[in-house]
Write a protein that binds this DNA or RNA. Structure first.
Lengths: 153, 153
DNA sequence: AATGAAATTTCATAGGA
DNA sequence: TCCTATGAAATTTCATT
């Protein structure tokens, strides 16, 4: 973080919202020529500031616009049960995010489903076969207000 | 969704996890030459299946590795209050995601902060000045288990 | 650490199977 | 819808400042 100058930060902010600018375009934006821009970006990639580049797809178009936050309590809290849970969750495609959290529940999952029927099937059949799970609580997303896909710095 | 053939879906899956492959590389992966791959991707972009391309940054490197799910209840539930809330939330950089949800709370926010002190400051000073908010409940992320950044289809 | 030019690679389009 | 071919444009390297 300390070896980044304002130009690096500016490049990162731009690329975090749109990674399709050419080096020439980026060069104009940060008042440099294309080659230092190229070298800066390569450095930011190598140093791990930029983890990867991805395409953002429109979930609605794939009939996957039904988002649910699913809170999960484990049956017991030992290392083995935890590891089993993590391994199982990694295999379930509907689960796009999973975090270990504070509070009444142990984990929160962000789940993408087609509709309520699909979600119900997910809970019964997919989560239902994860034996480490004690109980669940589902919170349904009615609409997306903001999604920046990235961090602020 | 119906005008997508298996090759389109394969390309989307690849690009959703890594958008830096060249058309030549993609062509090999899907057993085509570069130009139909190029045409397919352009079509997927134009039809909105691909919304945009972004760089994924490492939040830890920016000292923004402290994630919190912040649940929010509005003071009242009328259109004006709701609109005010949304407008205010859009302006707060720490809030990277916001959804209108079912259940006891009205909204869930995904918040990135540097540390607990920064989060405390966020709650008191940033959320504190959003007058439409009635009450909040914070759930702290202890570790990230899974984050695919994208949908399954 | 940036510039500008040169070399390399990829993109983007056109014509034909 | 695909292929090959081609010129344009972008990336990447490098000598110079």
């Amino acid at each position: 973080m300390n070896d980044l100058d304002p130009t690096d930060l500016q490049l990162l902010r731009i690329l975090a919202s749109n990674a399709k600018y050419t080096n020439k375009e980026l060069a104009q934006m940060v008042n440099l020529s294309a080659s230092p821009v190229f070298e800066r970006i390569k450095r930011l990639e190598n140093q791990g500031y930029i983890k990867k580049y991805i395409a953002i797809l429109d979930a609605e178009k794939f009939n996957q616009g039904f988002m649910v936050f699913c809170n999960i309590k484990l049956k017991q809290h030992n290392k083995d049960i935890g590891h089993h849970f993590v391994a199982d969750i990694m295999e379930i495609d509907e689960v796009v995010e999973c975090y270990n959290i504070s509070g009444d529940y142990d984990f929160i999952l962000k789940v993408y489903a087609r509709d309520m029927k699909h979600y119900q099937d997910f809970v019964f059949n997919k989560l239902g076969s994860v034996t480490s799970i004690g109980s669940t609580h589902s919170t349904f997303v009615m609409s997306e207000i903001k999604n920046t896909h990235n961090i602020h710095f």
